[in-house]
Design a protein around this nucleic acid. Structure first.
Lengths: 242, 242
DNA sequence: TATCTTGTTCCGTAGAATAGAATATTTCGT
DNA sequence: ACGAAATATTCTATTCTACGGAACAAGATA
């Protein structure tokens, strides 16, 4: 095992301390922290003092309890600005592409349509080519329906009113199953599977889909493909902090 | 010099690494980082690996450069919510107090109990006095049940096992109705109404309650009070970014 | 007032963390 | 295409950091 496989113990412990703070538990005593991470008071005191000095923790002078410090908000804002959905999603999309050698796309909503923002192409001669930048209606195709399904009700109804190609029933079923398929629906002979990607707050912000000639989306392997598309969406969501 | 005056070196170094990321410099190589903090490559590699494992840093598989990871955004959001709850909630609590001249309290969970962290008192001679810092079981009283109802199942069940004063059925009904009342339950002659407050992620992090002598919580005006308490909780939640 | 709980400081020592060396991989200049 | 330079990874002997228990201090509670 490489030396880098074992985490630096003191750093692990410091991060354990930061992890003690959670919604509804935003202020903790030294004893609270020591108990949660199962460390001695003196060790905890030293680590907490280091985090306090660097303003990752702050001590409330009235209650003598600790909260996350101002530096946390600062690097949080920096972290958000640095995070790029495409960069995060791409490795997982590649993994999915590697499994089946089918095209894998990432879609987000823009101007009440969906747009492809990332793509991993198949190398097979027979393929459904998709380009980054391609735009399509939300009501048509698997990825479109996924993005439509999680919009606020009024917005969703307005889009369906303009182009009633799918239905609330279909969208409800999609939300229940966590994926949808399109079999030759937008293009004859082309099928796809799509699943929703959630951000750290649980909002659906993108859809990942895998598509190709319908002939390769039939038979017994199909449910395996569905399962893997859903898994890819989950992994991307996790990587985004869900 | 006390031991806690000297920071834990490895932790200081890890935080030095996080500090290397700044606007306009959101992606760095291992060498960049080692140079900035003046550490050997092998030491830097090990610290960076620890931060990566804990998702404080993430490595771009194409460029092999490091960025701040998803955990940074998570704790950043937490840090922000920790700072603001009482300040944000107080004006809405005062508004509710102004409507009825009844006491209004803000509760959060601490050590599997609820604690009052903000209070607007009634000026009427007959009043149920509550002090900031007062602690009570989660299983008793309206605010306690509200906080208990939205805890993760295992944690909730553990608390109910220790003090089965309320039930899963009652908590389910509460989640459905979005509020609960306590009529002389914890203290004879005292009644209260409580509703949940959600943060930007939709997590229930606090409860707002209005309480006073039961004689003032009867009759036709009661449902109006319920409606206003729920509204106050909603407004506070919105102000927190929900 | 006595006891308990929480927090701080001190200190001997085990082993974690270190950096240099060796090696591997990638990038760059010619 | 190839060699040099730069970047990155892994290994390991050594040092001294980080550790936790003990002693003590301060605050809370019965």
């Amino acid at each position: 095992m490489a030396a880098t496989d074992a985490p630096v113990r003191a750093i692990d412990r410091a991060l354990d301390i930061l992890d003690c703070f959670e919604p509804g538990q935003l202020e903790l005593t030294l004893t609270d922290i020591a108990n949660r991470i199962d460390l001695s008071m003196s060790t905890t005191s030293r680590i907490v003092a280091t985090l306090e000095k660097r303003r990752y923790l702050v001590r409330n002078t009235d209650t003598q309890r600790y909260s996350l410090g101002s530096r946390i908000a600062q690097i949080g804002a920096l972290g958000l600005s640095s995070m790029d959905l495409r960069k995060i999603a791409l490795p997982y999309m590649r993994d999915l592409n590697a499994l089946y050698n089918e095209g894998v796309s990432l879609y987000v909503i823009r101007d009440d349509e969906r747009i492809c923002v990332e793509r991993v192409e198949s190398t097979l001669p027979l393929r459904r080519v998709v380009n980054v930048g391609d735009r399509h209606p939300l009501t048509r195709g698997a990825a479109g329906r996924v993005l439509l399904a999680y919009l606020p009700r009024e917005r969703r109804e307005a889009i369906l009113a303009r182009d009633p190609f799918t239905s609330e029933e279909a969208l409800e079923e999609l939300r229940h199953g966590g994926y949808t398929v399109s079999l030759g629906e937008r293009e004859e002979g082309v099928s796809s599977i799509a699943a929703p990607i959630q951000d750290a707050r649980g909002e659906v912000i993108a859809a990942v889909s895998m598509s190709g000639p319908s002939v390769r989306f039939e038979g017994s392997g199909f449910s395996d493909k569905i399962s893997k598309v859903k898994k890819t969406a989950e992994l991307i969501s996790r990587a985004l902090g869900r």
